[in-house]
Design a protein around this nucleic acid. Structure first.
Lengths: 148, 148
DNA sequence: AATGTTACTACCATTTTGAAAGTAAGTCAC
DNA sequence: GTGACTTACTTTCAAAATGGTAGTAACATT
């Protein structure tokens, strides 16, 4: 399943999940969006074992969602910053969060605010073509050829 | 991490991922949205080992995204259908697919069409409060208390 | 020289995965 | 009513992934 770069499945969902379909990768990306960049920041924030963090950061870097950047020459220190692809992953995280908020509420929750308005955002996925909310109109998954 | 129902992390993203942060669960959900309902349909479509499919379907059912429904009394046969929570997961899948489409294109891809217009959908996540596309305005993650 | 910081790697027990084969409860064809 | 078939699994077990503890390398600070 996790054959790194070479996922030939025609489904873009499967392709995306082929390398970041695990909890840690997504939580690392969440933290990166919050603003964390350093190994120990991620480690402390997530309570993740360093072995696994190393591996996840390497995968995320190889896959082009994060990139290493030297932030100190002496001593040589690197941090991990989001690339454009990593930044464009935000809508996915936000939609996951919206679902979690609705169906796994209960107790205090982190909220995502618009900095300018100061209000909690209300994320909705819409189809830019029709302007309709995703899920309100019937959709069809179309195979490119004749597989599956 | 995967302590089933009892995730106390205040982040709704983490709560969501606590039980379906693995590739198979999300691909099962994708197939369920396509219209598959039966054990063997999922098994053949995904090429998943039956052991794992059994476990994933059980988790997804316990977590309220799928529910078992008897579709034949003699012989007794059950199928798995999406609940409201499962159906509301579609926007997440669609956004994952949109990212995969953009950053893991290359080669033939499954596309998602609006049945009525016959056109491929263009999924965008927006903030219903400001109407702005998610990612175009600065956001802030707000902790409920004083943890993390 | 001793201590601290940061970003890791090594080791290893436990857990999870996944492939192949088997099973249980029925139906259908003759 | 016996043999083949279908469907939805379970059993078994080797291989891979996970995760906790400890250690290391390269420097800075005191």
């Amino acid at each position: 399943m996790n054959d790194k770069n070479i996922c030939t499945d025609p489904c873009p969902i499967a392709r995306c999940l082929a390398f970041l379909g695990d909890t840690w990768s997504l939580l690392i990306l969440r933290d990166a969006h919050i603003g964390l960049t350093r190994f120990d920041q991620f480690r402390k924030s997530l309570g993740i074992a360093p072995t696994i963090l190393t591996r996840r950061l390497a995968t995320l870097t190889e896959e082009g969602l994060l990139e290493k950047r030297l932030y100190s020459e002496r001593p040589p220190r690197e941090e991990y910053v989001l690339t454009a692809a990593g930044r464009d992953f935000l809508p996915v995280l936000v939609m996951i969060g919206a679902w979690g908020h609705q169906y796994r509420g209960g107790g205090p929750l982190v909220r995502i605010q618009d900095v300018e308005t100061g209000e909690d955002i209300k994320p909705v996925a819409i189809d830019a073509v029709t302007g309709a909310k995703i899920g309100t109109r019937p959709l069809r998954f179309v195979l490119p050829d004749g597989a599956d």
